[in-house]
C-alpha cells in the first residue's frame, strides 16, 4: 500500500469531491421529497401516482442519466451539476415514499390533540407531524445516503472526478491498488454519512432518549 501513502492527498481531494457530489443532493432531495411526501400522505388519491411515479425514476440506470442530463440541461458533459441533478433525482425517488409513510404513521389522536390545542396546519406540520416522522425519514435517508455514495462513483465513466476515478485509473493500467483504495474509501464514506445522519436524528428526537414518565 505504498501507493496510498504516495497519493494520500489526491485520494483525500477525490473523497472531498465525492462527499460534495453525494451529500448536497441528499439535502436537496430531502427538501423536494418533503412537500411531495406530504401531498401523498394528505391526499390518498395522489399517493399511488406520486409513489409509483417517483419510484420509476429509480429504474433509470445511473449511467444513462449521467449521459443524458448534459444534453437535456444543455451543460457540458464534464459539468458536475449534471451529477448533482442526477443524484437529487435518485434521492427524491427513494425518499418520497419514506416521507409519506412516516407522516402517515403519526397517530390521528396526536394530530387531533394538536388541532384542539390551537395548532394551525403549517405549525402542526412543522412542530408535531414532521418531528414525529423523523425516525422513519431518517431510516430512508440512511438508505439514500449509502446508495448515493455508491452511485456517484459511476460518474467516472463520463469523466467527472471523485473516488470512482480511482476505479477507471486502476482498470486502465491493470493496477489493483487504486481500485481497492477506492472501494474501501467509498465504504468508509458511506459509514461516515450513516453516522452523521444517526447523530442528527438523535439530536432531533430528544424524546426517544427520555426515560419513561414516572407519574
Amino acid at each position: 500500500m505504498t501507493w496510498l501513502r504516495d497519493h494520500f492527498v489526491d485520494v483525500l481531494g477525490l473523497a472531498g469531491q465525492h462527499i460534495y457530489l453525494a451529500g448536497v443532493p441528499l439535502v436537496l432531495g430531502l427538501l423536494i421529497a418533503l412537500p411531495l411526501g406530504w401531498l401523498a400522505s394528505r391526499y390518498k388519491a395522489l399517493y399511488p401516482f406520486l409513489i409509483i411515479g417517483t419510484g420509476l425514476l429509480y429504474t433509470i440506470p445511473s449511467l444513462a442519466l449521467f449521459i443524458m442530463l448534459p444534453l437535456l440541461l444543455g451543460n457540458g458533459v464534464l459539468n458536475p451539476i449534471n451529477v448533482l441533478v442526477a443524484m437529487t433525482i435518485y434521492t427524491v425517488a427513494l425518499l418520497v415514499r419514506t416521507v409519506a409513510d412516516g407522516l402517515g404513521a403519526v397517530p390521528d389522536a396526536v394530530n387531533q390533540s394538536a388541532t384542539a390545542m390551537g395548532y394551525k396546519r403549517l405549525r402542526r406540520f412543522m412542530s408535531v407531524e414532521l418531528p414525529l416522522a423523523v425516525p422513519v425519514i431518517s431510516a430512508g435517508l440512511r438508505v439514500a445516503a449509502v446508495s448515493n455514495v455508491s452511485i456517484v462513483s459511476v460518474a467516472t465513466l463520463i469523466g467527472v472526478s471523485q473516488l470512482g476515478s480511482l476505479f477507471t485509473d486502476g482498470f486502465s493500467r491493470a493496477f489493483l491498488d487504486p481500485i481497492i483504495v477506492g472501494v474501501v474509501a467509498c465504504v468508509l464514506l458511506a459509514l461516515l454519512f450513516d453516522v452523521a445522519i444517526l447523530l442528527v436524528t438523535r439530536l432531533a428526537t430528544p424524546w426517544q432518549r427520555a426515560g419513561s414518565p414516572t407519574a
Binding site: 449509502v146 470512482g164 486502476g170 481500485i179 477506492g182 467509498c186
Partner: peptide, 18 residues
C-alpha cells in the same frame, strides 16, 4: 447488509475482473 449496500458496483466489477 448495510456494508454490502455501500460497496460501489463499478469498483467491485473491476476488482472481480482482475
Amino acid at each position: 447488509v448495510g456494508a454490502a449496500r455501500a460497496i460501489p458496483s463499478l469498483g467491485l466489477l473491476y476488482l472481480a475482473f482482475f
